[in-house]
Amino acid sequence: MTENKLNEKIGTAPCEMAGLIPWYVNGTLSAAEQSDLEQHIAVCALCQREALRCQSLVEELPTPQDTWKPTPAHFAAILANVDQMEEEALKREINHTKAAPGFLRRMGTWYSQTPRPVRWTLAFETFAFALLALFLVLPHSPIQNANGNYETLSDVGSPAATKGASIRLVFSEDMTTQELFDLLKQAKAQIRQGPSEVGSYTVEVESAEKARSLTLLRANPKVRLVQLVE
């Protein structure tokens, strides 16, 4: 009866150190493990047999009939694979760059893929927006005429300086623009202010023409009020 069979029969506990025997035999245990195991093997029959078996295994290891040796041809094949691998890596890198272009490139690609009407609408909106932004950003000053005395009808609070006589006028409601134009032309008058809240206009005439202008204006049936402003 073998020792193990005897152990099984009498229930003897197997050796806990036996798991390290292969590395004891190949000499890779630490100094402490080696020392502990040597002391143990000296008194443990099971581990002595394990050590003998492992030693036998080392000695009886079969020599491979077929061996493998590196060759220049094999290395050349590896280098060819390296070249191919690097070429593929380069292609992937290029594709990656193409796949992830800059913001403007991506916008351009997206823009070129939109339907034509949408594209034109977007272009117009972008242009309008840019124009508005430019207008808001640029400094601007009021436009003045050559004499520097131009003012708008709404510029009530600060009437332009006058050089001639000012006349306040109130026109009838049925007076047309053309009639107004003709009348002011004949009287050599220019609107300087108005209409006011009560519908009056202030016109300017040359001082030398003041009497004639007043006569003309008062003679017109569609002028309800002619008043010289002092």
Partner: peptide
């Protein structure tokens, strides 16, 4: 040669070892 020997025992076919050694080197 060293890991080729190990692979030869594992794979047992010369052409497979060629391929495995190639893969290791890559």
């Amino acid at each position: 040669e060293g890991f080729g020997r190990f692979l030869m025992k594992m794979l047992k076919h010369q052409e497979w070892v060629d391929e495995a050694v190639n893969d290791v080197m890559l």
